[in-house]
Structures are given as C-alpha cells and as structure tokens.
Design a protein around this nucleic acid. Structure first.
Lengths: 344, 344
DNA sequence: TTTTAATATGCAATCGATTGCAGAAAATTA
DNA sequence: TAATTTTCTGCAATCGATTGCATATTAAAA
C-alpha cells in the first residue's frame, strides 16, 4: 500500500499536452503563462492531488527555506519557549524548523550541526551545550557560508549574530534588590564557568557587592549548583557555616532556588525574614511556592522571535557587509515573597 | 562572503582523476571500491571539507530520513517531553525531526501537514489540535503513502498507528481512589469533548461512579475548564452550590487543578479534609504546592520513544500487511496530599 | 595455461523542479 | 501593412548524488 509513486509536474504536463516548464510556471507565481493554461494546470494539479516535491525544488534552488535549531534540551522550559518563538515567525515566512538536541553533550552537538549543514539548512540557530570544549564545529558552519545565530549560551569569541540576555545587568539588579531589602551576606550558587552566561551572572553579583561596599567571601560562592538537589546540598552547607549567609542567589536556575527553599523550610528557617532567596528563569512554579520565589524573567518566547527576525532581516537585506550583530534583551527582575522583607 | 559554492563529489573526482561514481561508492559503505581508492577519496573529501548534499541524496533515494512532528504547542510540557523522546530514538537511527506547531488551530495544522508531505518526510507524527473539525488532511497523508502516527489526541476513526494513554482507566482509577478516600460528591472538570482523550476521561469518571453506586449529577460536570483561570471559576461556581461537591477531578490539566486549589485556599476550605483534588499530567509544580496535588503521570518521554520505535519497527519490517496498531501506555496515578484523607 | 569468478571503475540515466534561451504567436505601434 | 513589442511555450541544461549495466582488470579455480 505504501509504494504508489507520486504525481509530478510531468504527469500534469502529459495530461494537458504541454511541457513541464509550462506547468512549473503555471504553478509558481512569476513568469509568462496564459491565464487559461494556468487555470487548467492548477485544476489538474488539484484533481490529481499533486504535491510539489520540495526536495527537488530545494536542490535546484540551492536553498531549503529551513532553519536548523540546536539546543541542549527541547523539554527544558526556556528552550521550548525559544523554539516556540522561532516557530511563530518562521511559519509566517514559510520556513520549516529542524530541531536537534545536544543533550548537553559536545559530541552530539557536533554531529547535529554537521547533519544540519548536510541538509543544507539556510540558517543554524544554536545554544551551546554545557560541556562544549571548543567551537570548531561552529566555525565550520561559517566556513560553509551558512548563516549562524547563537542565543543565550553563546561562544563569545565567534563572530556571529547573537541574541542574548543581559545576564550581568539582571544579576546586578537582583543582588542590588537583595541588598536594598537589608540582606548583607549574600551567597551565590553559580553555574559552570565555561559558559559565558554564568560568568556574566557572577560578574553582576560581584559588581553589586562592590558597589554597595560589601565583602566578597569565597565560602559564599558555590560552584555548579544547578539542580534542585545540588541547590539543596549547597544550601545545607552554606547554612551550617559559623557565619552563614542571610540570602542566596541561585543564579543557575529556579530549580536550584527551589532546593534552597525546601532546605530552609526543613530547617525551620523563615523565608524571607531570616533568609532571602532569588532564582533565575521565572519558571511557572516560582509563582506558587510559599513564599513565592523572586526570580528573573528572560522573555524566552521573545528571544526566539528575536532570533528569527534577525535571520529574516539579514536574509532580506542581502547586505554584503553583514556586521556581526548582537541583540540584547533585558531580563526583568520579578520581586516576590522570597525576598521581600521590607514593606513597600 | 556567503556565496562560495560548496564542494561536490565532482570536485573530489576531478582532483583524483576518477569519476563521481567511484567517489560516491568510496564514500558510502556498499559496493566494490579499491581500498586504496577509498582511502584516497576519504582523505581528499576531508581535506576539501566536503559536506555531502543530503538534499540531492534525498531526491535520488526517494526518502529523507526525516520525521515530521505536529503538535499544538511545543512549549507545553507534555508535548515538549514527547518530542524529546522521539528525538532520542530518531537521533540514534540517524533521522532528523521537523517540528510544527498547530497553535491549536485547525488551519495551521492542515498547512503544516501539507508542508511536511511536500518535504517528503518519511513519517508524520501528530497530536491533533483542539479545534480540529475534520481529518481530511490526515487522510491525505495516508493517500500519499506516508506513514502516519497519531499520539495522545488521536482521530479514532482513522486507521493509523497510534500511541495513546489509557485515559479511561487512569480516570477510573483516580475517581476510585477519591471514593476510597471517602469522597462521595465528586465533580468533574472536563475538556472539549470533540477530543477523544477528554471523552475517555469522562467515561472513566462515569464508570467509577457507577461501579461504586454513586449518582451522576449534571451540575457536577463542568465543561471546558482547561486553564488555571477557568478551573478557578468553575470551582467558585461548584462550591457555591447548595449541595457542593467534596472533591474535584480536574481531568483537563494540573493547571486547572491548581486553580481549584487556589480558590479553596481563598475560601479557607481545607484540602484534603474538606475538599479533595486530583489533576492530570504530573506537571512539575504539582509536587511543590501545599498540599501537593494528586495527579496522573502520562510518561510523556516514554510516549515519544514509543512513537519513534513504532515507526522504526514498521520501517524495518517492510511488512506489506501493516495492520494499524495501537500502543497503549498505562498512566500512573500519583497520590499526594490533595486527596489523602485517610492514613495509610 | 585456460576458464571462471571476483573486483574496480566508467558511462549515462535518474530523481523532480526550475530557468535561460529561442522561436512562435499575439498584441501594439508606427 | 509593416515593424516592433509583448506574451506564451518548448527545449535542454542544471542542481548533486546514486546505481544498473558494461567493460576492464585482477585473482582464483580448473
């Protein structure tokens, strides 16, 4: 049942006693075709249930109207939202999306990128995996003349289009907020420092402390507390210090912040009065914990749209001097219960 | 900078003074090629940075090693998980994924499906949108001889491969659980009845009531309470009845259940003692509300894997009599605080 | 050594749509 | 009516990889 051969423009041409060229022209918009012929071709195409073979067209045209997207995980809220944003714009423009997951593995990322190059996608959009140790594969993309757009987790040295959050500033504002709420001993749960975003968040933290003349304590900076479990473990350690922190900024994720909150509630430490908490990402659940968690919204869907728009702008401009451009989206601090000690 | 032409097997052939045929055979695994030649070709390919043009290959081979996926929303947890599951298996098999969103719009779904057909994907995986009013577009897929697999939200009448949850049974077990916890007046928040999954969930509800000899009250069945807001509104109405329910099964989603919980806490109605609540989907947040919400896990990632495996099984079998097969995954009731009145 | 089989490579067609060029037909202008 | 322009259609090449058939070379068997 599966092996019937599909209808082609040759079939239509034969039936109408014209050439495939004419059929092609009749079906596409441009070119000279007699309106009667065009009408006839269209009707016959519909009648025969003709489906244009995009593969053939792609080969001939040298483009695929396809964007390849590589993310660490498609089922991570942030990335799912970005993809949704890209899809929205791409759909309007008649573009398709090929999605790859790196699963945070450099190896898989490299393979995925190569597959996308081979598929001749018009653009590759990527947020690099956590264990990236080099960016040769991205350089390959550029060498092949394929448009490359990085977002969120970007390789900074690479001259490509980028869409990023201003992590440094967001982080700075979060810490400033905590300080203004009267917290003085603020700990940082930081992510893998090979990723720029986490370095930036750390920098924002440091800048805020400096600005407010607070000391930086090494013991208050915990590496790689990414998950709820790691966040919880880090919190236990931090709170057992003789001079324990009075606030924790989980710069890695809201999950980590949740771990902090759970440990606090286990230890009967009151949030926000005894301990302030701030997460990162504005996951849905941050709104419904008790207390609700202060966090930072990254406008993920908008980021996706920005990525897509960036691509289409470039594509439509045909600009020869395509200056590597960076679009920065300003995240927003969402103040909630977990850090609100002072009445407003 | 963008317009350099890519390296082809002709370039390699020319450089080595052989024909493209030989190059092709050297690069692919099968066929007779002198091992020295093969070696030479491979080296030259690497040296020239040759990237095989999948588009050309696809055209020639009549297949694309691509699976098209259409879901209502990619950034909805359940669907994101299913996609992640599909991707895992597909990646291992060397297949790519084209992802489309219907945004719950029939029109967009139809267009997406057609695009996928035109792209000549080897298989289309779909979970239909909420406002689907006919399935002609899916029939088209079958007519074109493209493998079609439906999951979760399926058009039952269509003879295709399907991967579904046993919604009826899950729903039945949820209600049975509530009854066993001593709840006697159980309300149902139901989803759009044009989708089979919601009809099944309702059926499970009805069967359980019948089995336990409880009356079915029309006033206890609320249509289309899908979101948190709608769930909250429905709850207000239900709880204001003179003979109000003592439990609410939000068969639509955990978000709806969350709405129920919030209204209950506003009205100072104690959960679970005065009101039992059960949601659907096992969203991450259900674990961290207080009380935590009893819900039903759908094993979404596994569903995705099941979908992919189903496809590859069929593809590898080359079976002529491909009997339409349905894989049913048994969801699991996760009992939590919101419905636990009795000590265990 | 001759015959047969296995291995290597080339030739040319194929997948299906697109398009530059050319000639024919129709419409417009002189 | 002749000259020019515009519209329509066909021819054939092209995009890049694959493969059946044919031929040449080498290895193995008789």
């Amino acid at each position: 049942m599966n092996r019937k051969k599909r209808v082609t423009i040759y079939d239509i041409a034969q039936k109408l006693n014209v050439t495939p060229s004419t059929v092609s022209r009749a079906l596409s918009s441009g070119g000279y075709v007699n309106s009667t012929t065009r009408q006839l071709v269209r009707e016959t195409a519909a009648e025969l249930n003709y489906k244009p073979n995009t593969v053939a067209s792609n080969l001939r045209m040298g483009k695929t109207k396809t964007i390849g997207v590589v993310v660490p995980r498609v089922n991570q809220n942030f990335f799912a939202n970005v993809i949704a944003g890209i899809e929205n714009i791409a759909y309007e423009k008649g573009y398709s999306l090929i999605i790859c997951q790196s699963d945070e593995q450099h190896q898989k990322e490299v393979k995925s990128v190569n597959t996308l190059i081979n598929q001749r996608v018009d653009c590759i959009v990527i947020s690099v995996s956590a264990d990236s140790y080099n960016y040769d594969h991205l350089q390959h993309v550029l060498d092949q003349g394929v448009q490359l757009i990085q977002f969120d987790r970007v390789a900074e040295d690479l001259d490509t289009l980028k869409v990023i959050n201003d992590n440094e500033q967001a982080s700075f504002e979060a810490i400033s907020h905590l300080i203004e709420q009267g917290y003085k001993k603020i700990a940082l749960l930081e992510g893998p420092q090979n990723l720029a975003i986490f370095r930036q968040r750390k920098n924002g933290y440091l800048r805020a402390l400096k600005q407010y003349n607070l000391p930086v304590k090494d013991a208050f900076i915990v590496e790689n507390a990414w998950t709820k479990e790691l966040g919880a473990a880090a919190t236990k350690k931090l709170l057992s210090l003789k001079n324990a922190p009075d606030a924790i900024f989980a710069s890695t994720s809201d999950f980590s912040a949740l771990g902090v909150l759970e440990v606090a509630s286990q230890l009967k430490i009151k949030v926000p009065s005894q301990l302030g908490i701030c997460g990162y990402s504005n996951e849905a659940f941050t709104e419904i914990t008790s207390p609700s968690i202060t966090t930072i919204d990254q406008f993920s869907v908008e980021m996706g749209k920005a990525v897509a728009n960036l691509f289409f702008d470039q594509a439509e401009k045909h600009s020869i001097t395509t200056a590597p451009k960076t679009v920065s989206i300003k995240p927003e601090l969402i103040v909630r219960g977990s850090s609100s000690r002072k009445k407003t």
